[in-house]
Every structure is written in C-alpha cells, then in structure tokens.
Amino acid sequence: MLRRLASLPVVLLCVVTITFFLMRLSPGGPFDSERKLPAAIEKQLLAKYKLDGTLLEQYSGYLKDLLHGDLRLSTKYRNRSVNEILAQTLPVTLTLGATALLIAITAGVWLGAFAAARPGTVAEGGALAAMLLAISLPSFVLGPLLILIFSIKLAWLPVGGWGTPIQLLLPAVTLAIPYAAVIARLLHDSLRETLAEDFVRTARAKGLTERAVVYRHALRVAILPVVSYLGPLAANLLTGSIVVETIFHIPGAGGFFVNSILNRDGFLLGGVVIVYCVLLMLFNLLVDLSYRFLDRRIRE
C-alpha cells in the first residue's frame, strides 16, 4: 500500500510531462493568426504567458508553478487564470459525474442481481439482452435520441442547460446507462459463479429463501469485481462527460477541454488533464483501500 502511495507522484509527473510535450508538439503557437503580430508585441505576449525561453526552461518553469498550485493563464480566455476557469466549471462536471456514477452503480447492481437470481428464465434472458443493447448505445447516440424523444417530441424534460435537478436527469442517465450495463454484466457473471459455491449451498440448506441467499450472502462476495471496476469506470465517466456536456450544453470543464484543443490553449488543456488525473488517482486510491478492506473481511 505504501508503495502504491509512493508511485502516485511518479505517475503524476509522467502525466504532466506527457501533457506538456504533447501540447508543444503542434507547430503553431497560440498567438498565430491571419495577421502577423509586430515582433515586440509578440515577444511581450510570450513573456506574459511564460512561453519564452528554451523548451526545457519552459518545462521546469511550468513544473515549478504547478508545485505552487498555479495552473497559469489561459491564452484564449485572456485575463482568466486556469485555476479560475476550473473553479467555476469543475463542480459542474463533478456533480454530473457523481450522479452518473451513483445511477450506474445502483441500476447496474440491481439489474445484475435481478438477472442472476433468476437463472434460465425469460427474465434473465431479457435482462441480458437489455444489457447488451445498453452497452452498444454510447452516450453520443443515446443522448441526442433521448433529447429527440423526451424533450422535443414529448416535451417532458428540458433540452439542456444547467442549474436545476430536472436538468441534471437526462444527461446523468445518458452518461450512466452504458456503464450500468457493464456493471450488471460483471455482477451477473460473478454472482452465477458464487452461487455455485459451498457456502451458498450451506445457506440454502439452512432453509433461507433464494432472495436472502442471493442478496445477503452471495452478493457480498460477488460484488468484488464490481468494486475493482470502479477505477476504470470513473475514468470512462470523466471522458464520457466531455461529450455529454457538449450534447446538453452544460457549462462544465469538458467543453473547455475541447475548445482548448481547438484554440491551442495549452495551459488550460494541461490544467484540465492534470486535475482530471489527480482526481482519478485519488479515487483509485480510495477504491483500492476499500477493496482491500472488503477482501480481507471476506477472507477472515
């Protein structure tokens, strides 16, 4: 565990380095435009945004600023710092992501257990088919279709925007559904395996109902693969939220991410990537801890 903790800064340094040099790979600069700027003004601009000096100097300067918690200035949204932009947009993205995570876990666990508790029935077959369908429905297909049905044809829900819980519903569901299906399948397969084990037979022999066997005894063991999937799931949700924010016009960090690539806004891009990675690493650490805790309790 301690080794795990020690490896975090190393991974983070790799992330920062890769992002920095990827940003610098493209030949154009952020201030290139149709009209050439006068040399003196360009020099001043480069100095203000700390883009002067050799690549190595810029890199070490960037690292130094990062260590002080300064993500620097955006080159597109002049006079706004990356910290400021992220402080406004990140809570939006995180709310969306956390809601989707909650929906994915709840719906996935419920559907997986539902299917596994009814082996060989039409209900199981139907649930499995629904999972397959949901996995094949990426958010950029599902989102516009849901808008078309619920917001335009039926006019039950708002087309987009942000601020009220009702506006959160459609995007969070769009983001969650494919991953709920992944969780359901994972849980279904692992429950089927667990239900064949000895301790489950003992529980059945005690005369417990099938419901109690599945939900009280088997589920506790079978949930482990789902717990270890939470790390990759969080990464997928953060990536997926970029497209969901675009579809539903949500003012989150994802839209700024896409724009920062198009505008060659290097420090904004770097800021989003670095903050995403830090969040994911912390989340993974938490998942890892809880996995070890759960696993040990089961072994004992």
């Binding site: 992330v15 890769i18 990827l22 493209s26 969080a234 990464a235 953060l238 990536t239 990537v273």
Partner: peptide, 17 residues
C-alpha cells in the same frame, strides 16, 4: 493505464501530431 483517461491523451496527440 486502465485508470487514466487514455482517450483524452490520444485526443491531444492526434490534434497535435
């Protein structure tokens, strides 16, 4: 690599390269 948003890096890479 599983728990890093790989697609994001690829996105940057494609557009930069």
């Amino acid at each position: 690599l599983y728990s890093v948003p790989r697609l994001i890096f690829i996105l940057i890479f494609i557009n930069a390269f």
